[in-house]
């Protein structure tokens, strides 16, 4: 089983994701430089958070033109597991691998804090080891995490169970205060129709070790590993 973490110029959670996969989860993990044109022999690839290309134009707007993206689109088409975290999610949207777009947080400020997520879908590979309705505490850190899509797209996402995570309070209830960015329907993460491509704003790699105060994030990586192990 081999994992990969893509490095764009300006990625800054690449080391964190690599550490969690390679050193905490103990799965072999490579860095994949963004100029690489071919993706072979990987079972799961993570697009990490950061500020690729300095957020020029829009978040993720330039990174999607990196050579690795064409290879990743093919890889995802073959059913390869692909997870975008924060900036990685923004890049997936810009690349058209997931629908919708990101707006600035309604506060107009960057926000870094713990949020609670309700697991809405446990069929996909990244939540296969979670229970439906389970509440996870995972931090966010972004300025543009206000997920938006037109009504038709949102309806399609909701009807097909493609909303994977929703912001909620400690008890699992939706609330304005619990949503850190103003996203439609409190959406924190979504997946594609097949479920092999998933994007989320919160950072599971930041809460996968006891010393950091929470291991809730680890469940996502465990899910992917268990899914792959079959």
């Amino acid at each position: 089983m081999k994992f990969g973490v893509v490095v764009f110029p300006g990625s800054n959670c690449d080391h964190d994701c690599h550490y969690v996969l390679n050193d905490v989860m103990k799965v072999k993990t490579d860095y994949i430089w963004h100029k690489r044109g071919e993706i072979k022999d990987y079972d799961c690839i993570v697009l990490p958070g950061g500020v690729s290309y300095g957020d020029s134009l829009r978040t993720g707007a330039i990174a999607r033109f990196s050579p690795v993206m064409r290879a990743l689109i093919e890889y995802a088409g073959r059913g390869g597991l692909l997870m975008g975290i924060c900036n990685g999610f923004q890049i997936l949207l810009e690349a058209g691998l997931l629908p919708g777009a990101m707006l600035r947080n309604t506060s107009l400020s960057f926000v870094c804090r713990d949020v609670w997520l309700r697991v809405e879908n446990t069929k996909g590979p990244f939540t296969s080891s979670c229970k439906k309705g389970e509440i996870l505490k995972i931090p966010v850190a972004h300025g543009e995490g206000n997920y938006y899509a037109d009504e038709k797209t949102i309806k399609a996402l909701e009807d097909n169970g493609r909303v994977v995570f929703r912001y909620c309070d400690e008890l699992g209830m939706p609330s304005k205060l619990a949503n850190p960015n103003g996203s439609v329907n409190d959406i924190a993460g979504i997946c594609n129709g097949k479920g092999n491509v998933m994007g989320m704003m919160p950072h599971p790699e930041r809460c996968s070790e006891k010393v950091l105060g929470s291991v809730d994030g680890k469940k996502l990586f465990e899910s992917a590993i268990n899914f792959l192990a079959g």
């Binding site: 959670c13 964190d16 958070g49 960057f110 870094c112 950072h203 790699e205 930041r206 950091l212």
Partner: peptide, 12 residues
Amino acid sequence: EQYDHMVMTNTV
């Protein structure tokens, strides 16, 4: 909360 105080996953 406006500062990313957790990136690098070292903040205990």
